[in-house]
């Protein structure tokens, strides 16, 4: 391996994206080459700092899954239950691309009967 090849591999090695045998070959070169050694140390340091920088931004908002689910699985955004276990009414408020459908189910003694669809 020459220095140019080593330079190409160093960022990947630092990012742990280099296949093991290439990594071994790289280290073999680096051990005997002061210039690439410096480059490797510098890149490892940079990698650590960059990972931290990218990780620092806040991730997606918690509620994002609900919108995705509503537009894919059709899962309800909101479930409202009224009544008791013996007899009650459940309203599922969903969301699709075309609107906000509401479905109502009346349950009597565990049996569910759809009563409403808007």
């Amino acid at each position: 391996m020459n220095c140019d090849q080593a330079r190409e591999m160093i960022p990947l090695y630092a990012a742990r994206a280099l296949p093991e045998e290439d990594g071994a070959a790289l280290i073999e070169h680096v051990v005997g080459c002061g210039v690439c050694q410096g480059e490797l140390v510098e890149t490892m340091r940079l990698t650590h700092e960059l990972r931290k920088a990218f990780a620092q931004f806040p991730g997606p908002p918690k509620g994002a899954w609900l919108s995705v689910a509503a537009r894919t699985l059709g899962a309800p955004l909101l479930r409202v239950g009224v009544g008791s276990e013996i007899a009650g009414l459940t309203l599922d408020v969903g969301a699709t691309k075309t609107g906000v459908p509401i479905m109502g189910t009346l349950s009597i003694l565990g049996r569910e009967v759809p009563v409403l669809r808007i």
Binding site: A15, R51, A53, F54
Partner: peptide, 23 residues
């Protein structure tokens, strides 16, 4: 570091993210 990343041209910033953050 964050400023330096932000100041990169978009394609380079993307490569840096995919290589260093995503590996």
């Amino acid at each position: 570091v964050q400023r330096a990343v932000a100041s990169l041209p978009p394609e380079q910033r993307e490569v840096v993210f995919l290589a260093f953050y995503e590996g």
